[in-house]
């Protein structure tokens, strides 16, 4: 059972069972690692904002780099109008990043490797952006499905494609993160298992792969958090500045 590479994704209850209207809302290991990520973020940002120095210390510098990084990302993709959504993008990026990174620790649980978590994020962003679009532009927001400069003959087909692509946004957004995290962790586990089963004789090869994959997974953890945040920015941009 321990060698099953999917075992690491199991969700189990910690503490008492909480049931409201027959829905199980118990505190699970997933919840625990969400909490650990949130607490890590708080500690990191607390250290980053503790001193208000003109010449920043290590943690202050890190938090300011993060701030500038996300600020630049938002202004580059969504422009000035997206300024009010800065805290949300910031939280989203740092939460996904910390969940991914905490998942890289051995024997820990990766919150973002569960489709339901990423789907919850993606649906929230999708619904939020759609509501925002209709609130800002009214029914003109439907123009997003009608690209300018398209021949009238092609318009119905293009519109269908645009609608499908718009509706598939939450799916692509959530599956991208979930699949990346799950595949990476499964692969790590598989290669780790090989090290044990091949032993001292040939175990070195999968061990080398395992080390290399760990590095790659850390990169992927950062990259996927970045991609998640920047795609959110792009969707937000569509809602704020109607280009089509």
């Amino acid at each position: 059972m321990a060698t099953n590479p999917m075992h690491q994704f199991n969700v189990y209850k910690i503490g008492p069972e909480i049931k409201i209207n027959g829905i199980d809302l118990s505190f699970t290991n997933a919840s625990l690692f969400m909490l650990i990520s949130a607490i890590s973020i708080s500690i990191f940002l607390l250290l980053g904002t503790k001193d208000k120095k003109i010449i920043p210390g290590k943690f202050q510098l890190l938090s300011e780099i993060l701030y500038n990084f996300i600020s630049k990302m938002i202004s580059d993709t969504a422009g000035k109008k997206a300024k009010p959504y800065f805290p949300f993008i910031f939280s989203l990026f740092i939460f996904v990043l910390f969940c991914n990174m905490v998942g890289m620790l051995p024997y820990s649980f990766t919150v973002t490797s569960h489709i339901i978590v990423t789907l919850a994020f993606a649906m929230f962003i999708f619904i939020g952006v759609t509501i925002l679009g209709f609130v800002i532009h009214g029914f003109k927001y439907l123009k997003i499905f009608v690209p300018s400069g398209v021949p009238v003959v092609l318009l119905p087909i293009i519109m269908i494609i645009e609608i499908i692509s718009y509706l598939s946004r939450p799916v692509s957004l959530s599956v991208r993160l979930f699949a990346n995290m799950m595949a990476g962790h499964t692969m790590l586990k598989v290669f780790g298992g090989f090290v044990i089963s091949l032993g001292l004789v040939a175990g070195w090869l999968p061990l080398t792969f395992s080390v290399a994959l760990t590095g790659l997974e850390i990169l992927v953890a950062f990259l996927q958090a970045y991609v998640f945040a920047i795609l959110t920015c792009i969707y937000l941009n569509d809602a704020l500045n109607l280009h089509h």
């Binding site: 969700v11 708080s42 701030y67 949300f88 939280s91 978590v117």
Partner: peptide, 26 residues
């Protein structure tokens, strides 16, 4: 089995971290 639980706790914890970040840290 635990989908509802995960979404529930995610909502609570993410909201908490969002308010902390939006009101204090940023």
């Amino acid at each position: 089995t635990y989908w509802a639980s995960q979404v529930f706790w995610l909502t609570i914890i993410f909201s908490a971290i969002y308010f902390l970040i939006a009101k204090i840290f940023v």
